Amino acid sequence: MSVREAAPVTVPAHAAPAPTGQLQRSRRSGQWWVPWLFLAPALVLFVYFKFIPMAQAIGMSVQEVRPYLGNTWVGGANYTEILSSEGFRSAAWNTVVLAVGQTFGSMVLGFCLALLVEGQTRKLTFIRSAAFLPVVVPLAVVAELWRIMYHPTGDGLINQLIGLVGLGPSGFINDPHTSLASIAVTGIWRGAPYDMMIFLAGLAGIDRGLYEAATVDGASTWKRILHVTLPGLRPVFAILFVLAAVRGFRTFTEVFLLTNGGPNGSTEVVMTLIYKLGLEQSRLGVGSAGAVLLFAATLVLTVCVQLLRRRRSA
């Protein structure tokens, strides 16, 4: 019994499958505009409400703004005036102190919270959601809540709590010596849960085998955090430092609602000073110069952190 061998099937040259790269290019051809179509509404809002006002602020910073009379060119006179102002230097110092305190305070507290609530159980999910509530609460509500708790008399909530350990009542936001620290505590309380969530995402990306190997080697909990957790979270720390620092430099609402720069200018920051110069005193040119200086400082900080991060990773 003979078995016929199957004749080889020849595929025409025109029927040969196209390369994978060519198929992908053919599928994407003519559709490059689809992502931009979805981004268009957000881009329009950004351009109209952010980039155009930024360009106008830069233009007004070198002009004497006179509504209905026409602006006049003054060059760098506005920058000279605001840089030579004692009020601006004091506000800049308060801004730096507040930004540093809020940045490191929220990062340390957020890191500790992330270590405490890391896990997959339902109880931890509820605790994480409850801890994140300060972030979603409107900042005006947060400021009013802390203003009530900071009531300077002995009947205030925080004064009653510290009275339990024998400490006398404090003026908090009404005392020039404690007002800035009180605002920093409010910012830390609100910013730490946001940092906690980013730390949790970073902790999820650390290889669990490293913890197991460290445990086998007899490393304690503190050593595992020091030699495994912290190195694994180095990129997260860099990102959070930039975000928290920018958040600290742009502090306005809590200061404006809690103290409005008082008492005696002890909590005056650059943002509240710009607001007063531009909208209360109608010195829009000088206020715009202050805003440009604040933007430049934030930009320099961000670029320096990114360059330092790239140098370490190289």
Rank of each mutant, 00 (worst) to 15 (best):
A13K: 08
A13W: 08
P17E: 11
P17N: 11
A18F: 11
G21Y: 12
S26P: 02
R28C: 10
A42V: 07
A42G: 04
F49V: 06
K50M: 12
Q56M: 13
I58E: 01
G59K: 02
Y68F: 14
A77W: 03
T80H: 11
I82K: 04
S84P: 03
S106C: 05
L115I: 14
T121F: 08
R122A: 14
L124V: 14
I127F: 15
S129K: 14
F132A: 15
V135G: 06
V136H: 07
L139F: 15
V141W: 08
L145K: 05
W146V: 10
R147E: 08
P152T: 09
T153D: 09
D155V: 13
G156V: 11
L157A: 11
I158S: 01
V165G: 02
I173E: 04
T178H: 03
A181Q: 03
I183H: 01
I188Y: 00
Y194Q: 15
I198D: 08
A204C: 11
T215N: 10
V216F: 08
I225H: 10
V228E: 09
T229S: 04
T229N: 02
A238Q: 08
A238K: 04
F241G: 05
A244N: 03
R247P: 03
R250A: 08
R250T: 09
V255A: 02
V255F: 08
L258H: 03
T259N: 00
I274D: 02
L279H: 05
E280R: 11
Q281A: 13
S282L: 14
G285A: 00
G285S: 00
L293M: 10
L294A: 07
Q306E: 12
L307E: 09
